[in-house]
């Protein structure tokens, strides 16, 4: 059996072909008549005011932050899950501690209102 990832590579190439071919075909089919009004950004019909790249609030960042922590946690739990049948009982205990510490992190974020949409 060959490397199973070859198929993933092939699928990446094939999937890339879809937007490339689609946009290529559309390029020939569609009209090209740009004007400044078409190209202005949409703002419910009124003239756009200022740059779109305004500053946003930090709570978005905090959600991403909590996500990173739990994402990394899940990375460690996947191999544990696969090897679970080959591990003695104490492995379950270790993972309960592991999860409990991170559950504490969730509780902390919760109590500090970091998970509150303001």
């Amino acid at each position: 059996m060959q490397n199973p990832y070859i198929f993933v590579g092939i699928l990446v190439l094939a999937a890339l072909l879809l937007p490339v071919v689609g946009l290529g075909v559309a390029w020939f089919l569609r009209p090209h008549k740009p004007n400044p009004f078409k190209q202005s950004t949409y703002e419910c019909g009124i003239e756009p005011i200022g740059d779109a790249w305004v500053q946003f609030k930090v709570s978005y960042y905090i959600y991403a932050l909590v996500f990173v922590v739990f994402d990394v946690e899940s990375v460690f739990l996947f191999p544990w899950a696969v090897a679970y049948n080959f591990l003695p009982l104490y492995a379950l205990l270790e993972v309960i501690i592991f999860v409990a510490i991170l559950f504490f992190a969730l509780v902390y974020a919760w109590r500090k209102d970091a998970l509150k949409w303001i």
């Binding site: 960042y61 922590v69 990394v72 990375v75 460690f76």
Partner: peptide, 20 residues
């Protein structure tokens, strides 16, 4: 490598929080 990635994640989280 997995540990390095995990530590990089923790580091990035704290560093970006400091930057903000």
């Amino acid at each position: 490598a997995v540990f390095v990635i995990a530590i990089a994640a923790a580091e990035a989280a704290v560093a970006l929080a400091i930057i903000i």
